[in-house]
């Protein structure tokens, strides 16, 4: 354990803790744009600067560990001015499209601008506008909104270990480029960590505003992992999926199915009643009728050809309890061991 002072508050943290983490633990909020709880320190935004031992040259708190006896100041006038300068550098070319940006309302950049009280950062268009090189059918990259914080690249490398995207760093002209298009699985990890609206999702674009949505906590039904989801619900329709860094087994990660495969929920083609095929055509039926028919057909097949002529295959979308009941049904009622599960295929 090391002891130090942050903003005249005594703290004691394990060795190796960064100043930022220590401050957050003590309830002191340092503004950041590139730091993310799940990512290793990046140090690209220069927002989290602090003064150590009265030294006028500020250091980034996200990648400096706490040392014994350190005296840290997080909010002095000089620091504030430096932060404003750094923020204005970021804002200089940031597109003026909050009104149509999906992130507006939950945007980290907006929050930092508000918090620092910046009121004068006139927009200057770029001489050579960036061209969007990275995009998939599910993810869209808006180069003019990108602040080059590198959270997405770090997430792709450090969380998923894929390395599909990188930064073509050329000063002001830097932007995200694709390293290997085949590697990208559209998992959306980059989209989740993006602090601005530079990476947005194509499916939910323009469907709702963050402050109008309800967030409904639920569990993903696609596989047995049980990732925690938050469905964005507006007017009783699911318009998107997000998740929380502190929740469940996934801790903020999702796969392409969990993050983007929600449109089936409100799909018109979903069956609402059982269908029975008669003379080559389906007709709508009641549950009683359908179950009676199924039971009758199963019994007749079992009588004609024996129980092993029937096999059961369940879906990974069922819960463990349902799967257990299903195999029990196959073994005890039908009398066969021909039972399998799609996740094994």
């Amino acid at each position: 354990m090391v002891s130090a002072t942050i903003d005249n508050r005594e703290i004691s943290v394990p060795e190796g803790t960064t100043i930022l983490e220590a401050a957050q633990k003590a309830g002191i909020d340092i503004p950041t744009l590139c730091h993310h709880k799940r990512l290793p320190p990046i140090g690209s935004c220069n927002m989290c600067i602090v003064e150590i031992n009265g030294n006028t040259k500020p250091v980034n708190s996200c990648n400096s560990p706490v040392e014994e006896g350190m005296k840290v100041a997080t909010d002095t006038k000089a620091l504030h001015e430096q932060r404003v300068v750094n923020l204005k550098k970021i804002l200089k070319h940031h597109a003026l499209d909050c009104p149509i940006c999906d992130k507006a309302g939950e945007c980290d950049l907006q929050d930092v601008v508000y918090r620092l009280g910046v009121t004068d950062a006139p927009f200057e268009p770029r001489e050579n506008p960036r061209i969007a090189e990275y995009s998939t059918s599910l993810i869209r990259y808006w180069p003019e909104r990108c602040i080059l914080c590198q959270r997405c690249v770090t997430a792709c490398n450090a969380i998923k270990g894929i390395g599909a995207i990188d930064i073509k760093s050329d000063g002001d002209d830097g932007q995200i480029v694709v390293v290997d298009a085949d590697k990208c699985k559209s998992c959306g990890e980059c989209l989740f960590v993006c602090p601005t609206g530079a990476l947005t999702e194509n499916l939910s674009r323009y469907k709702g505003r963050p402050w109008l949505e309800n967030r409904v906590e639920t569990t993903c039904t696609y596989c047995g992992c049980g990732c925690q989801l938050q469905l964005k619900v507006m007017d009783n329709r699911v318009i998107g999926v997000t998740t929380d860094v502190d929740r469940g087994v996934n801790q903020g990660s999702l796969c392409v199915k969990g993050r983007f495969g929600y449109e089936f929920i409100g799909d018109e083609n979903r069956l609402t009643t059982p269908l029975i095929k008669e003379n080559g055509e389906f007709r709508e039926a009641s549950w009683d009728e359908a179950l009676d028919l199924t039971a009758q057909k199963f019994s007749s097949i079992k009588e004609e050809s024996g129980p092993d002529s029937i096999a059961g295959l369940t879906s990974a979308k069922c819960t463990n309890e349902e799967n257990y009941l299903f195999q029990k049904f196959m073994r005890a009622v039908i009398g066969t061991n021909n039972v399998d599960h799609c996740a094994r295929l």
Binding site: L96, C98, V113, Y114
Partner: peptide, 25 residues
């Protein structure tokens, strides 16, 4: 942190636009 920016500067200044959004949301 409290009052809305004026509507003209909102259209030319990203920091005013961002501030307006946070104040409204």
């Amino acid at each position: 942190w409290i009052t809305n920016p004026d509507l003209v500067s909102v259209q030319t200044d990203i920091s005013e636009l961002a501030r307006r959004f946070v104040l409204h949301t």
